[in-house]
């Protein structure tokens, strides 16, 4: 038993990013078809149908769904029983470098130094990776969720003091209104409430990764998600912002206990909702989840 190897992590993380660019998740396909079935605006229905055709064309030809491949972002859950036989972060960095050198079609240089605005395919802290521990598991669970400009630009966070629910929900809608047509709706909205500055943003990001149609397990939060989804879709922005009922396919909310200061973080995934996921086990097995 050698544990989870360097080469396996390198290969799997590169492959997760590559695959994430070429199809949309199964739950997104279902959500777009559902939206098309209930949309009342004819232009919007047309746009939704073109979205489905576009995703199918990319998957069939194994080409990119979008030219903005974003930057690679990995959310990694590390089982406490997982064992490694090499460096993890370095494996991910090398996997990305190898992918950049070999991927067809090639990637545009989206990795940007925020201080000089120089663009390329590598940089400080790139790929972006977060690690969390999970008790009693002998695997690591890796989700790849690349972030591109269209949806990445419009995330926002504000810290309130002892806010009531209407205040929190009004803020979420305010962020959605400012984003408007720009994050390629219908979007998945992720909302993180409470904890601390950094933790609320992490909760919001991870909320976007939850499968569409799976409500929060707590009834109070699930009801909030339902209210917010209805309110977002009442804005009338519609697919690509040119009008309609389908502005979001889901609003996912999560929260953490905190002090009386309450951060509220809001983030978006565009309609293509890129997401791939795999588990790497101690015995060498690799399970592709999506």
């Amino acid at each position: 038993m050698t544990g989870i190897g360097f080469d396996t992590i390198k290969r799997v993380t590169a492959d997760l990013y590559d695959r994430s660019l070429r199809f949309i998740p199964a739950d997104s396909k279902v959500a777009l078809r559902k939206a098309d079935g209930i949309e009342t605006n004819e232009t919007a229905r047309h746009t939704l149908q073109t979205m489905i055709r576009s995703a199918e064309a990319a998957e069939q030809s194994w080409r990119f769904v979008c030219s903005d491949s974003g930057v690679p972002v990995y959310v990694i859950k590390v089982g406490t029983q997982a064992r490694f036989s090499g460096n993890v972060r370095q494996a991910i960095v090398e996997g990305f470098a190898d992918l950049v050198a070999s991927i067809q079609p090639p990637l545009l240089p989206h990795v940007t130094n925020p201080l000089t605005l120089e663009r390329g395919h590598s940089g400080r802290h790139m790929p972006i990776v977060t690690f969390d521990m999970v008790d009693d598991c002998d695997f690591i669970d890796i989700t790849c969720s690349p972030k591109a400009l269209g949806s990445g630009r419009w995330s926002a966070m504000e810290i309130f003091s002892f806010p009531d629910l209407p205040t929190i929900e009004a803020y979420v809608l305010d962020v959605v209104r400012k984003a408007g047509s720009q994050p390629c709706p219908p979007v998945v909205v992720g909302v993180g409430i409470g904890g601390t500055f950094d933790y609320a943003c992490k909760l919001a990001k991870e909320a976007t990764l939850r499968p569409i149609g799976q409500p929060h397990p707590e009834a109070m939060v699930a009801a909030m998600e339902e209210r917010l989804l209805a309110a977002v879709n009442r804005t009338g922005f519609g697919p690509m912002g040119t009008g309609g009922d389908s502005t979001a396919t889901a609003v996912h909310v999560d929260y953490a206990a905190g002090h009386g200061f309450t951060p509220v973080a809001v983030t978006f995934n565009c309609w293509i909702n890129r997401r791939t996921r795999a588990r790497l086990f101690n015995d060498g097995r690799v399970e592709i989840i999506e």
Partner: peptide, 13 residues
């Protein structure tokens, strides 16, 4: 003119 975002496969054809 509004082009579909995420429409690379169709636009490129």
């Amino acid at each position: 003119l509004s082009f579909l975002g995420g429409g690379a496969a169709l636009h490129t054809q």
